[in-house]
């Protein structure tokens, strides 16, 4: 019971703090999951990566943490806690905005939040990279994926799957790390 409450509280707070999208709360999520629920950085990055392979909003991966800690009930609690607070806030404010119309301060809020959320995304890259990029092979795979996605129009999912397949092959059969 206390695990469920703690999950609800943790993800409910992350929901409200997710300025500029889910990626902004990645570093905080990683820290909280390690501190409060003993999910180490490697497991965190694995589950995050599963989310990147999924269609739709890749933050649906949060429910895997709930499942690992408290089964299907935990997954349900995390899903509700992570999506309801921000959704209620967004709907309420959305209706308010449509009633009062565009105001200069809405633009100011958005302008102020944009660089903050980019800074948080940089922290997210840093946090994920620290756990995922651990040797010459993973550095190469990460940089190659980064470059190919920026330079070509190939779907990122294929790049991630390719990195996974190639990496697994080299690590498992040839012992390259």
């Amino acid at each position: 019971m206390s695990v469920l409450l703690q999950l609800a509280f943790t993800f409910g707070m992350l929901s409200i703090l997710a300025v500029g999208g889910g990626t902004a709360v990645l570093p905080e999520m990683q820290t909280l999951l390690a501190e409060r629920f003993n999910i180490d950085h490697t497991a965190f990055v694995h589950i995050y990566s599963i989310g990147q392979l999924a269609p739709g909003p890749n933050m649906t991966m949060v429910l895997v943490f709930g499942f690992q800690l408290a089964g299907l009930l935990g997954a349900g609690v995390v899903l509700l806690a992570f999506f309801i607070p921000s959704s209620v806030l967004c709907l309420s404010m959305g209706r308010l905005w449509q009633r009062i119309g565009e105001r200069p301060w809405r633009r100011a809020v958005q302008n102020a939040l944009e660089p903050i959320s980019i800074g948080l995304m940089c922290s997210g890259v840093y946090a994920v990279a620290k756990a995922a990029v651990v040797g010459p092979l993973t550095i190469t795979l990460a940089v190659a994926t980064f470059a190919v996605i920026l330079l070509t129009r190939v779907n990122p999912v294929f790049m991630i799957l390719g990195a996974g397949g190639l990496g697994a092959l080299l690590m498992y059969f040839f012992g390259i790390h």
Partner: peptide, 12 residues
């Protein structure tokens, strides 16, 4: 998953 995570870092 280690390979996929490296790719996901590149994507992020």
């Amino acid at each position: 998953l280690a390979g996929i995570a490296a790719g996901a870092t590149g994507l992020l």
